[in-house]
Write a protein that binds this DNA or RNA. Structure first.
Lengths: 343, 343
DNA sequence: CTGAAAGCGCTTACAG
DNA sequence: CTGAAAGCGCTTACAG
């Protein structure tokens, strides 16, 4: 949805439409107390409806600021995206405003409030849950936006950028099969996320193509974080017939699997092969360095910047949905299945 | 140095002082080409000298934006700071603009350029190298700033926030000594950084207090990153008389040490004890979970926000130099020295 | 609680 | 290359 340049929504335009004077609208905007509740309400809804945004004396130029919104900043995953976004934004002479909304309605309100008072050229939303209402508001603010790694099925109203999760799941599984593994476990990611589904389906497809059954005991739930990876590992290696390889849907969970293995005295990759997903710096730093499916997070961030900037300039974008390629990165956590572990 | 409210430096004030008209100054500010070089230069230096900042029609209010500047965004260390800053800034209704200047003069210029055109309430500089010239410019922009984890000896002109690095170095060393270790190695951080020196001195103090000699073979250089930690590990365990414990000045280097140990078939903590510094999330996720000196990075970020905000409001700050306490976090990478390794 | 008037900081044609 | 004039978007007293 490229923005058709609308007839500048100024304070006086709003005032006219509301049947009041400009100073009154100004008072509402600045939160001065002395406005009749009814008037205030009428003006406020009009401001929202028309997407009023404070602007300098100069017209509709870009302000050189892009909003980058996460649910949480507590994962190393987030930095990778920040890096790509920072890089591309600064190259384009723009700054990035980083926010975390913690999946809380209140934080989201506050962020919108903040955005409204300072203006920015667009928003990059990362795995945001509250798309529906949030996006409606952004629409009202006439703020171009793009979603990186969307939660649910992309609805095409907002452009999305992701990775080829299904293909990544497939390539990891294929690789393990090519090393002779037959009992391959999968530790899933947060089930409500679109990308988790795709990775799981890629894993299933890999097994089925090779004529292997999907053993439900070997598919365990996870939440993408270290703790759930650890729990998954405990469960998997407590099995009567444990797997010879584990593929988990995030690097962080894989580190949890490592620890579960260490506690049982099992060695990677001698006793068991392990593959992760993401290729965070942590994957290189793991001991042994982790074989993983690389997701080009920084590139996704860069592309997101170019996409919002296009939207902000009213240019067309190639496709509302882009998936960048994942790639298997082989390191030291995978090895051919051994006779002892395979039996 | 709190800002005394100066007589608003507006375009017309600059114009008058430069002996030109307001439109001419406006043209310079907007990079229009049609200004005589001499005029442009005169105006530009005046803009800098007077600390001209674009402001809305409303006066000297705060704009609700804080700049957070890193050299690089490639370490998990950075996110911890971002988290604290984001948290405190949003609580105060402010957004944060995150930049990476990559130690490059050009990126720094670009950032300053960017800041100049959009205005922000202040800057938080993290381990910035180019303090001298950069800070002079910020001073000119009348932009309050604080440095987190300063590179060199703090000069008191700008408030700084750090951690008790010396005490942290001491407590890690004391702890290892209390476990019976006598040959304790130290992997140092980037030598030009103030915090590296303090950690090293804390280590030395710990040894000396216990009546142990500092063995120069056991003090190896590092750069804070994984690779230098790995190299340090290789060197240390190639020694004729290797250490029974290693204390390294960052968690990232410690992960490199882990890998060097794994390659030699040495086990943590059975064969050797290891302590890190920082307590990044990575420390919890290491296998085995890492004993480390916690640095309250998020709190340092939060304090930085409160400090710039105070400066921005012209309030006094308690102390130009604050150090927050470090704390030893004991996990599974340390154990009493064993007879076999101690001999 | 609201508006008419004045004003502020800045920019945009226009003219030379 | 530069300025006088007009104008824009907004806010600030002031008056009722």
């Amino acid at each position: 949805m490229a923005d058709i340049p609308t007839p500048a929504v100024t304070i006086s335009a709003i005032a006219e439409e509301a049947g009041v004077s400009a100073p009154t609208v100004s008072r509402v905007l600045n939160g001065r107390g002395d406005v009749a509740p009814a008037t205030r309400e009428r003006i406020e809804s009009l401001l929202r409806a028309r997407g009023y945004r404070r602007r300098g004396s100069r017209g509709g130029e870009m302000v050189g600021l892009l909003d980058l919104v996460f649910n949480d900043l507590d994962s190393p995953w987030a930095v990778e995206i920040i890096r790509g976004v920072e890089d591309a934004a600064h190259a384009a002479g723009s700054g990035i405003v980083v926010s975390a909304i913690h999946r809380r309605e209140s934080s989201t309100r506050q962020w919108l409030q903040n955005v409204r008072s300072r203006t920015s050229d667009g928003a990059i939303l990362v795995t945001t849950d509250l798309d529906s209402s949030l996006r409606a508001e952004l629409e009202e603010l006439h703020m171009p936006s793009v979603v990186v790694d969307p939660v649910g099925v992309p609805d095409l109203a907002v452009p999305t950028i992701g990775a080829t999760n299904w293909a990544g799941g497939l390539s990891a599984t294929d690789y393990l099969i090519s090393m002779g593994h037959r009992r391959i476990a999968f530790v899933a990611g947060r089930p409500e996320l679109w990308c988790s589904r795709a990775r799981l389906d890629g894993y299933r497809a890999g097994l089925e193509t090779a004529g292997l059954n999907v053993d439900d005991d070997l598919v365990v739930p996870g939440e993408f974080d270290y703790e759930s990876g650890f729990r998954a590992g405990e469960r998997l290696f407590g099995l009567a017939d444990p797997p010879t390889a584990v593929f988990s849907a995030s690097d962080q969970m894989t580190l949890g699997v490592y620890e579960a293995l260490r506690r049982r005295g099992l060695r990677v990759p001698a006793d068991i092969s392990v593959i992760g997903f993401d290729d965070l710096p942590e994957a290189r730093w793991a001991s042994p360095p982790l074989t993983t499916v690389r997701q080009p997070l920084a590139e996704m961030g860069r592309l997101a910047v170019h996409t919002v900037h296009r939207l902000a300039r009213g240019e067309a974008i190639e496709s509302p949905r882009v998936e960048l390629a994942t790639e298997l990165v082989v390191r030291d956590s995978t090895a051919p299945v051994t006779v002892s572990s395979a039996e």
